[in-house]
């Protein structure tokens, strides 16, 4: 099935089995291996990418559903030479150990900060209509869809806290 989507700002053409997940399309067809397959069930978050500005588990979404969508993967967020502010913060705070969940954590956090900016409440928000302060509790709750078995959580949260509220990320 032919699908055209924009990935990291580039127009990409895909001709794949309609059952191909977005994750498999990215990894196997477009050679973007930064997004990881952790569980393939939408439960670990390692495959998180940003589609039209929102974070999704790419393993739970079919590539053909994303015709003309804008997809941003970890490769589109920054490169080792030009890290985004959030990526730099993950480096500065050691927000990882084995690194396997890290691309998903960073994609997730990047979009999560936009959700906060847009005033979306979370499960732990005391007032669902007020603008949320990004506390440790808020970040931890909003990042709870991204598992880290090394449990680098304290540093992940610190890294996100570091860039939260600052304009650059």
């Amino acid at each position: 099935m032919k699908t055209t989507l924009t990935v990291n700002g580039q127009l990409r053409h895909l001709d794949a089995d309609p059952r191909t997940t977005l994750l498999d399309a990215l990894r196997n067809h477009l050679n973007l291996t930064g997004s990881k397959k952790g569980c393939d069930h939408g439960q670990c978050g390692a495959c998180t990418v940003i589609v039209n500005g929102r974070r999704i588990n790419s393993c739970l979404s079919l590539a053909c559903m994303h015709d003309s969508d804008e997809v941003v993967t970890i490769e589109g967020i920054g490169t080792p030479e030009h890290l985004s502010a959030l990526q730099q913060a993950f480096v500065s705070h050691d927000g990882f150990q084995c690194g396997f969940c890290t691309p998903g954590q960073i994609c997730s956090a990047t979009a999560m900060l936009d959700e906060v900016e847009a005033g979306w409440p979370s499960h732990v928000s005391a007032d669902v209509t007020a603008k949320q302060d990004l506390t440790v509790e808020e970040i931890s709750e909003r990042m709870s869809g991204n598992l880290c078995r090394c449990s680098a959580y304290p540093n992940i949260v610190d890294a996100i806290m570091d860039v939260a509220g600052s304009a650059k990320r």
């Binding site: 920054g78 490169t79 080792p80 993950f90 050691d94 990882f96 690194g99 890290t102 691309p103």
Partner: peptide
């Protein structure tokens, strides 16, 4: 810092 830090955060 971890030797792969810049690679971990950029998916490389």
């Amino acid at each position: 810092r971890h030797d792969s830090a810049h690679k971990h955060v950029s998916g490389t």
